[in-house]
């Protein structure tokens, strides 16, 4: 593995609906899985993620937190979580 790849800094921001908000897409997927005959699926929630590569580690988490709460998610309906890849 080359050094450049090793040094890549990528963070993943996960976004999902807050509890209690009906997601009709996840409901439809669940109904389809039910119709496929699987009996043990209790609940499905759907989310999305963004992989964000950064060029410097200065203020990274602070900036990512701001970007996530200010744009990538809407705090009224969504939660976000940031992890380092």
């Amino acid at each position: 593995m080359n050094l450049r790849k090793l040094l890549k800094m990528i963070y993943r921001v996960y976004i999902n609906f807050k509890k209690g908000i009906l997601d009709p897409e996840a409901e439809a997927i669940k109904r389809t899985i039910d119709s496929m005959g699987y009996k043990t699926i209790k609940n499905i929630s759907k989310g999305k993620f963004f992989d964000i590569e950064i060029s410097s580690s200065k203020n990274t988490l602070g900036d990512l937190e701001k970007i996530s709460s200010d744009l990538l998610s809407n705090p009224i309906i969504e939660n976000f979580k940031i992890i380092k890849k």
Binding site: L22, D23, P24, E25, A28, I76
Partner: peptide, 9 residues
Amino acid sequence: GALIDNYKR
């Protein structure tokens, strides 16, 4: 508030 997918999508 927020405006999200219609109930029946």
